[in-house]
Nucleic acid binder design. Structure first.
Lengths: 222, 222
DNA sequence: CGCCGGGTCGTACCGCGGTACTACGCGCCA
DNA sequence: TGGCGCGTAGTACCGCGGTACGACCCGGCG
């Protein structure tokens, strides 16, 4: 069962969503909110799997609310809904950390599929918007080097070493890594040393850069 | 009626798609191809609405075939399918001009919805891949104005401190920074200390992460 | 069986990084 | 004139990070 928080300033709109979602066997509306501030509060309280977020709302809008919810670090995922496919909204919502962006004219099964995907940790974008996202994507995202697969230095890492590299990329000290992985700091140092040697980094700073370069580390993930 | 060209090196796979699509009222398979070269030829001949393209094929692969079909400028849209959600494939396919990218384990209705969307000029990405696309999108596509402005922590840095932060983001040691900026290492340390305090970083590692986060440093810049 | 790769842990050493504090010259401005 | 922000520079101290060993256990494999 997927729990959903419905956020919209229009009472009728919320009602519509509630009727639709409660009529489905796999989803359940556990709460509603009429503005951004309330959405943030109720998300913290109810910890729903998915927050169905309208963009345009009086007071705090859906974008800002999304940002706060995402920054709070709970496990709730935000699926942004809007009537208007304004580029700025899409852009801002995705940068705010939304897991999805759908139009309100989506068919019920599309909405359901979106909620399911978002609850499962995936992401969705309305097809009508995907086109533009991809165009910008192709225009801005640099070509991956190595048409022949990933960097050999990365491939030479063992599974454990890759985990260590990711941890380094999060900015953790050796002690913190040791605590999280429940091993001794000596072990971490051993691994770190091997990682640095394999990827050709002088110190962990260069390792972080390498990790970002390879897409192993990403902004906004603590 | 949407006309479809099925491209896959496995005969059985093509058969499966044909049966599925021909059983639907709105789609019709008008041809098949077993490799990239044949796909390009048949697309030119048949001018299908949608080309269902497998990635892995002997000879010319699906990516290259997609590129040629798109460059040919016909009205056929390419929907790429693959069994493996390898990042490189997604990346390459989208850059090649594909209108969509789905996994072969997609449910029939998802595939149908994808074909419909692509035929209508929209684009689709499998939810499992959208997550990563969005991450890269957020990382690379520049922030638009009206996007809540830059981080106040970044704004509090002086010009010199910002230069220092960029240098840290390149992975340089204090000594190297001192040499390049032609100042003493003491000075660099002073600046670094102030930068760390202002942006709230514990050490230069976290400063690097912050720099990437803010777009001050990016992969591929020496 | 022995070998080997991977993961774990320890000791010892040294240097860079980060902090605290002080200090000076310069340009700007009240 | 004095104050202030900024860039510069120095000393002293300490701890984390990185390296160089050696060691053990385990699972897979010839």
């Amino acid at each position: 069962m997927t729990t959903v928080l419905v956020v919209d300033d229009q009472q009728l709109q919320r009602y519509g969503f509630r009727v639709l979602l409660d009529s489905m066997p796999e989803t359940e509306v556990v709460g509603e909110a009429a503005n951004g501030a309330e959405a943030v509060r109720r998300t913290a309280e109810l910890r729903p799997d998915v927050v169905l977020m309208d963009v345009r709302m009086p007071g705090m809008d859906g974008i800002e609310a999304t940002r706060r919810i995402v920054e709070a670090g709970g496990r709730s995922r935000v699926l942004v809904l809007t009537t208007f496919d304004v580029d700025e909204y899409v852009h801002a919502a995705l940068r705010a950390g939304a897991s999805g962006f759908l139009l309100k004219d989506a068919r019920p099964e599309e909405l359901l599929a979106g909620i399911r995907a978002v609850a499962g940790g995936d992401a969705v974008i309305a097809p009508a918007l995907t086109r533009r996202i991809l165009d910008e994507y192709a225009r801005h995202v640099p070509v991956r080097r190595g048409d022949a697969g990933e960097d050999p230095r990365l491939a030479s890492l063992t599974e454990r070493e890759r985990e260590i590299l990711v941890a380094i990329g999060k900015g953790w000290t050796n002690g913190e890594i040791a605590a999280r992985f429940v091993v001794s700091e000596s072990t971490v140092k051993t691994h770190v040393g091997r990682v640095l040697a394999k990827i050709g980094a002088r110190d962990r700073v260069q390792a972080v850069i390498f990790a970002y370069d390879q897409g192993l580390a990403r902004p906004g993930i603590s």
